[in-house]
C-alpha cells in the first residue's frame, strides 16, 4: 500500500503539482518571514508582534480592495488595484513600524533581549484586541475569513492552470511571482544600495558601524519600519488565499511558521531565510499531499514543520546559514 502511494507520488503530474504548490508556499513563507529576519539580524529583536501586524496588513489590504473593486472590475483592474493596495499597506505599516520602534522598542535596547520578546508579545495582545473591537463595531466575525475581501479576487486566480501534464492553481503561480519579486527587491536593496550596506554593516557589528559614522539609531528605526511594512505586504497577499484569509487567528497562524523559517535559516541571515522557506514550503506541500492521499493524521503538515525546527536546532543550532554568536545571549 505504501509502495503504491509512493508510486502515485512519483508520477510527473503529482510530483509537479506538489513542487509548484511547494514553491507557492515557500513564496508566502519568505514574504512572511523576511521582515522578521531583517529586524532580528540588525537589532537582535525577535518580534512577536510580526504575526499580528501581518494580520493587520491582511485587513487593511482587504479594506482597500473592498472599497475600490466593484462587480464589473476586470482582471487587469483587479490586479492593478491589488498592487496599489500592497503599496498602500506597505506604506501605512512602515509608518506604524517606525512609530512602534521610536516609542516603545527603543527604551529597551539596554535591557536583556528577553524584554524585547516580552514587549512585542504584549503588543500582539493589544493589536489583536484592537482589531477585534474594530471588527465588532462593523459587525464582522473575527474568527472566520473575511469573505468580502476574498470576493475581490479575480476569476482567473480561482481557476486551475494546466502547465503540460501538471495541474496547479493560477493563484499559486501569482504567489510565486510575487515571492520572487519580493526576494529580488530585498536582495537588491541589501546589496545594491548604500542603505543596504549600512544595514549589513550594522548586522555584522553595530559598534563598529556607528564608529564609522553611520547613524545606527536611524538605521534601526528604518529597518524595523521596513520589516513591519513587509509583514503588511505579506498580509495583503494572504487575504486572497483561502487557506489563510483575513481573520484574527491569522496572527498566530503566520507567526509560528515565520519563526520556524527564520530559525531554520539562521536568525538574521536573509539568504538563510530564503533557503529555509524553500525547505519548509516543500516539506509543507509534500506532507499535505501525503495527508490528502495516504496518512489520516490531520495535523501532519503542521507537525512536520515543527519537527523540521526541532531537528534543525538539534543538528545545527545556529540554523542553516546562521553565525553562532547571533542571538546566543
Amino acid at each position: 500500500m505504501i509502495l503504491e502511494t509512493l508510486a502515485d507520488f512519483l508520477t510527473v503530474s503529482e510530483l509537479g503539482s506538489v513542487l509548484v504548490e511547494g514553491l507557492a508556499k515557500s513564496a508566502l513563507y519568505v514574504m512572511i518571514a523576511s521582515g522578521l529576519t531583517l529586524i532580528f539580524g540588525l537589532m537582535g529583536v525577535l518580534n512577536f508582534a510580526h504575526g499580528s501586524l501581518t494580520m493587520v496588513g491582511a485587513y487593511l489590504g482587504g479594506l482597500v480592495m473592498v472599497l475600490t473593486v466593484s462587480q464589473s472590475t476586470g482582471l487587469v483592474g483587479r490586479l492593478g488595484l491589488f498592487f496599489v493596495a500592497i503599496v498602500l499597506v506597505f506604506g501605512a505599516l512602515t509608518l506604524l513600524g517606525g512609530a512602534i520602534e521610536t516609542t516603545i522598542i527603543r527604551p529597551l535596547y539596554d535591557r536583556p533581549p528577553i524584554y524585547q520578546i516580552l514587549l512585542t508579545f504584549g503588543l500582539t495582545l493589544v493589536v489583536d484586541e484592537v482589531v477585534r473591537i474594530v471588527l465588532g463595531l462593523y459587525g464582522m466575525q473575527p474568527l472566520s475569513d473575511w469573505q468580502a475581501a476574498l470576493a475581490t479576487k479575480p476569476q482567473l486566480l480561482r481557476e486551475p492552470a494546466a502547465l503540460g501534464p501538471i495541474e496547479v492553481r493560477w493563484l499559486s503561480v501569482f504567489e510565486i511571482l510575487l515571492g520572487v519579486l519580493t526576494v529580488a527587491a530585498i536582495w537588491a536593496f541589501l546589496t545594491r544600495t548604500r542603505y543596504g550596506l549600512y544595514i549589513r554593516a550594522g548586522s555584522e557589528d553595530t559598534e563598529m558601524a556607528s564608529a564609522l559614522g553611520i547613524d545606527v539609531r536611524q538605521v534601526f528605526t528604518v529597518v524595523f519600519a521596513l520589516g513591519i511594512g513587509l509583514a503588511g505586504a505579506a498580509g495583503t497577499l494572504l487575504m486572497w488565499d483561502v487557506a489563510w484569509g483575513a481573520s484574527v487567528p491569522l496572527a498566530a497562524e503566520t507567526l509560528l511558521p515565520a519563526f520556524i523559517v527564520v530559525i531554520v535559516g539562521g536568525l538574521g541571515t536573509f539568504r538563510g531565510t530564503v533557503v529555509a522557506s524553500l525547505v519548509v514550503g516543500m516539506t509543507d506541500s509534500t506532507m499535505t499531499w501525503w495527508f490528502q492521499n495516504y496518512v489520516t493524521f490531520t495535523g501532519l503538515p503542521e507537525l512536520m514543520l515543527f519537527l523540521v525546527l526541532v531537528v534543525t536546532l538539534i543538528v545545527r543550532p545556529q540554523g542553516l546559514f546562521g553565525v553562532e554568536e547571533v542571538g546566543g545571549h
Partner: peptide, 29 residues
C-alpha cells in the same frame, strides 16, 4: 537534554517548537 545546548532566543524557540509538536499531535490523536 537537547534544548539546554542552546541559550537565549534559541532556547525559547526550541522549547516552543517541542510544545507545538505535542500540541499538534495531541490535537489530532
Amino acid at each position: 537534554l537537547v534544548s539546554f545546548r542552546l541559550s537565549g532566543v534559541y532556547f525559547a524557540m526550541i522549547t516552543l517548537g517541542f510544545a507545538q509538536v505535542l500540541y499538534v499531535f495531541i490535537r489530532g490523536w
